[in-house]
Structure formats: C-alpha cells, structure tokens
C-alpha cells in the first residue's frame, strides 16, 4: 500500500502545496508549473498595472500569466525565497497557506525601480487541488504598501 492510499484528501492537498512551495523556494518555475493542471486558473489579486488606456490585472492561467510573473520575479529578485508559516486544508481540495516571501532586488520590477533593497512580505495563498493531486486554482493576497515601502518605492501607481 502506498502512502498516498492512506492519506486523506486534505493531507494530499497539503502535500501538493508543500511541493509547490519547495519548488518556488528552489526557484524552479517548471517544477512549480508541474504541480498544476495544464489549464489551472491564476489570480494575484494585488497585481494591478495602471496605464493610461487600461488596467492590467494578474488574472489568467498558471501556464501563461502565472509562469510569466514567477519568471519575472525571480529575474528581478534572484535570491527569492519563501517560508511556509501555516497550511489549512479541507476534504474538498481547498487549501490556504500563509507564507512569507522575500528577496533582494537586482533589477527593476514593474514600476518598482531597482534600489537593491530587500523585502520579506506576508502572503496568503488560496489553492484548489483536484482529485489527481494537482493544483487547478491559485489565488494570492499580499499588501503592496508594505512591499513598496520596504523597497523604497513610495508611489501608489
């Protein structure tokens, strides 16, 4: 009997999410994506880029928007790391994870010009993990005021 056979769905979902953050901590984006279904949904709630014409949201699919944001983040913060503080999961595959993400800036990221600053920022990730133990939905919350302030960027937009 495999370990998976005796694990509850909540325990398996927690394991998948733990593997996701292990891959993120190793800055292995392909492995992060492999934790997800090919069509997994993605929403980084605070991610808003306001231009003259329109507002770009961090909303779409893991394989497109999510992957691009993770690659860009790791490019700008090459020592990006995370610490998982708590994981709460249910028997329907829902998972909430409180995570601190931090890194040292080496390139501009979006509107945040590179000043070489370091940040450590609380995040709340919400996942749904399907019955095949793959993530099919990622939502994330954090506070951009805290992030920008740590990086000495004081413009709201």
């Amino acid at each position: 009997m495999t370990t998976t056979a005796v694990m509850s769905r909540a325990e398996r979902a927690t394991r998948t999410v733990t593997e996701f953050f292990d891959a993120y901590r190793a800055r292995e984006v392909e492995r992060m994506v492999e934790c997800c279904t090919p069509n997994a949904d993605f929403r980084y709630v605070p991610f808003e880029v306001w231009t003259r014409q329109r507002v770009i949201h961090g909303d779409g699919k893991v394989c497109t928007v999510g992957k691009a944001i993770w690659v860009s983040l790791i490019d700008s913060f090459p020592d990006l790391t995370n610490e998982v503080l708590s994981i709460h999961s249910d028997e329907d595959g829902n998972v909430a994870a409180e995570v601190t993400i931090g890194g040292t800036q080496s390139k501009d990221f979006g509107v945040i010009a590179c000043g070489g600053g370091h940040y450590d920022l609380p995040h709340l990730f919400l996942f749904h993990v399907d019955s095949d133990d793959l993530i099919d939905d990622i939502v994330c919350y954090w506070d951009n005021v805290d992030w920008k302030t740590q990086l000495d960027w004081l413009e709201v937009d």
Partner: peptide
Amino acid sequence: VTGYWDQNQLYRRLGVKRLD
C-alpha cells in the same frame, strides 16, 4: 481573526497618490 488585503488598492481607490 486574520485579514489580508492590498492597502495600495484601497489608497488608489480613495485618491491617495504617494505612500508617504
């Protein structure tokens, strides 16, 4: 009770331009 949100979004919607 623990609450998470982006205060920057709130400031933007309420007309704040600079965090300082």
